[in-house]
Each structure stands twice: as structure tokens, then as C-alpha cells.
Computed example of a mutant assay.
Amino acid sequence: MLDLVIDARPAAISASMKVKRILPFRLRRMVGPFIFMDHAGPIDVAPAIGSSLDVLPHPHIGLSTVSYLFGGQVTHRDSLGVEQIIRPGEVNWMTAGRGIAHSERFEDPAALVGGELEMIQTWVALPEKDEEDAPSFTNYTPEQLPIFTDKGVWMRLIAGSAYGLGNDVKTNSPLFYLHVILEPGARFGLPKGHTERGIYLAKGSVEVAGTIYHQGQMLVFTKGADPVIVAKEPTTLMLLGGEPLGERFIWWNFVSSRRERIEQAKEDWKQGRIILPPNDNQEFIPLPDDKSKPAGSAPRPEPLS
């Protein structure tokens, strides 16, 4: 029934941006095609130090980034020349394909006070046939995302299909991704029809089969499990999963089904072959040192399976 519980670990993605990292995890690298999940915030900082939260231009290959905000706002800029202010309830889907660079900057002083800034970012691995596609970016407004309500339950379909809901968010493989809010005592079940399914507790707590789970935990369920999820207090969940894609390798911001493709991406970034955002090209994150192997040996990307 319950296959695994993943506890979020602390990580940092910029000088001051601390996050809770959920995926990848050493015992469970992927849930369906989802290979990465970070939860940032709630953040309450003085506007004067807001720039230290910024994530400078950096590269991706072989994946789609999905940014979803609970509160605040962030400005996205990428190699395609896109400049998009991301606001709560929107879906911002950037497909890296053969290579893209982007930045995430926190430029609105009002969004940095009061603990309103909070966001989830996931990465969705691409099928092998799509890994070298041209990069793209699409912003979907809340009006394009269906909402379902029932007694004590509110949910928004971010992408894919679940509970009979669907939307026009373009995905490359079968998946589901939902934002769910439960009132105390509400009972909820997992969507059916997907091989791999997980629940991340962004806020609150739930009871499953007599055990209580808390904020910052992801519950991963076995295929065919039909648990009853009971909210113990006001609770926010992120539900995700879908069909597995097979083995993937990951190193830094690069994902691929081929180890040698990761090595090529490293060299592409060092040599400037992945273009910086034209409206944010004065600074960038350099390729980090690979400390996974002794000096002189070939670095090996970490497999995700």
C-alpha cells in the first residue's frame, strides 16, 4: 500500500534561497516522470536583500521545469527571450529539450515581506524521442486550469489527467499533477489509472491507515493501492505521478537517458554554446566542480531509476 515515506532535506539554490528538497531521493529517484521537486518558502525577508534570493541564469537539458506558486511572484527570463512574471495559481512550463538557460529573480519588494513568497518547482523528464526537441516556454493562467470542489476538498489540476479532469497544459508523457486543499476531517483518495503516485504534504498533516504524516513528507504508494487520506488539520497537498520513463541520468541541472549527453551538456555550458537569456546575460552560474570522482577519472552522472 504505502511503498515509501520521503522526508524533505534542506538545500540551497542561491545565496539566500533555502528550499526543502523532496526528489530525487536515494531510495526513490522518480515518481512517474517527475525527477525533481523543491519547496521554497514561506519566505519573509527585507526587500533590501531580495536580490540574494535570485537564481542566476543556469542551463537545463532533457527535462521540463514546472513552476507553481502559492504566494508572491517571481520573474522568469530565458534563452528564447521570454520574460514572464509568474504569479500564484499559474502553471509555467519550460521545456529545455536540447538546451536552454533561464533565471528566476525576485524583483517585487512587496512579495518579499509577510511570508507570502512560496513556490514549488518540479522537473519532468522527457521521453527519449523528445529529449533533443527545440526548447519552449508556455504560461497557463488559472482560468485555463480546472478546479473541482467537494465537501472539505478543493483541487486544481496543474497538468495531465486525474479524477476525470483534463486541461490544455502540454505534456510529453502520461502524468498527473494537482494542488489540493483539505479541510480538517476531509477524506480523500488517490487518482486511479496511473502506475506511480505520490503525495507531498506542503502544509498540515494527514492520517493514512492509522499513521499520521506531517508537513515536509512525501508518501509514495504501490501500484493499485487505494488508501483513504484523512486531513487532521487544514492541509495542502501536491499530488503527482504517472508512467515511468526508464533509466535517467542526472548531474546538476542536466537530465538524459544517455550518460554521454550529460558530458556534452557540461562542455556546452563551459563553452557558451547554451545561450544566456538576452535580457539577463550579465552574470550566470558557472559549471560546478565535479567532486564525485578522484581527479583524473571520468565523472559519471548519477542514474535515476
Rank of each mutant, 00 (worst) to 15 (best):
V228G: 03
H179F: 08
L237K: 03
F221N: 01
Y200I: 08
V206W: 09
F188W: 12
A186H: 03
H194Q: 12
V230N: 02
L175Y: 11
T235A: 01
A225Q: 12
H179D: 14
L178D: 02
L219A: 03
L201Y: 09
Y177G: 04
V206T: 05
G185Y: 06
G185Q: 07
K232W: 01
Y177H: 14
G198P: 09
L178C: 06
S205G: 14
K232D: 01
E233H: 07
V208K: 00
D226H: 15
I199E: 03
L182G: 00
L237N: 00
V220F: 13
A202F: 08
F221R: 03
L182N: 00
F188Q: 00
P174M: 09
E233D: 06
L178T: 00
K223W: 11
G193F: 04
E207V: 11
M218S: 14
P234C: 04
E233R: 13
V228D: 10
R197T: 14
V228L: 15
L178K: 01
F188G: 00
L182W: 01
M218V: 05
Y213M: 03
Y177A: 10
V228C: 06
L239M: 14
G216L: 13
I181W: 10
L219G: 02
F188A: 01
G204E: 05
I212A: 00
K203P: 05
R187L: 07
G193H: 08
L178R: 00
F221Q: 04
A209F: 12
G224L: 08
M218R: 00
T222N: 14
Q217S: 06
E196C: 08
G204C: 08
I199H: 04
G241P: 10
Q217W: 07
T236A: 09
A202D: 05
P174C: 10
G241K: 05
L240A: 10
P227H: 12
Q215T: 15
L178E: 07
